[in-house]
Amino acid sequence: MGDVTVRVNGTPHSLDVDSRMSLLDLLRERLGLTGTKKGCDHGQCGACTVLIDGRRAVSCLALAVAQDGADVTTVEGLAADGALHPLQAAFIERDAFQCGYCTPGQLCSAAGMLGEAGPSVVTEDLTADPPLSAAEIRERMSGNLCRCGAYVNIVAAIGDVAAAGGAADMATAVTGTAR
């Protein structure tokens, strides 16, 4: 067991946690924040994606005891009470989910991704920050599986938010990091 203090969606929690417990299970089983999903528990599906200190991370591979002092944002904290984050609104508008089980991970992943700078493997010009084309979104979102096959709509939804401009600003608002 070990003591940790983590901030989750702005609220600090001090807990005595089993040293074998993942951050994912801490969120779901100890804090009752079940919005973050467990799809594989092995870092292979992305369903458990959250933002840790502003960067997207799979919470099933993060040991809870190692998160002392971390600032975690889950799907429940993407937007302030009652409001929707632009990504959440775009996912609804574009029907970017079916069963919804991958959705919190997709949303947190997209929120983190919008704040990430630099090229990807599909970027042609490696010297410039690429515009967020559909191909870039597809590449950067490939850590988040969707078995319902909603990718076409997921890419469209993220593209809408990116195109609405201020993608980086929004990401900053959520993650606290600048692009």
Binding site: T34, K38, V75, I92, G100, Y101
Partner: peptide
């Protein structure tokens, strides 16, 4: 839009393992 859409994008929709 999907009736449960808001519940699904905010993490409020509960699946089997998630009942307290």
């Amino acid at each position: 839009n999907r009736i449960e859409g808001r519940d699904k994008v905010t993490g409020r929709a509960r699946y089997a393992y998630e009942y307290p």
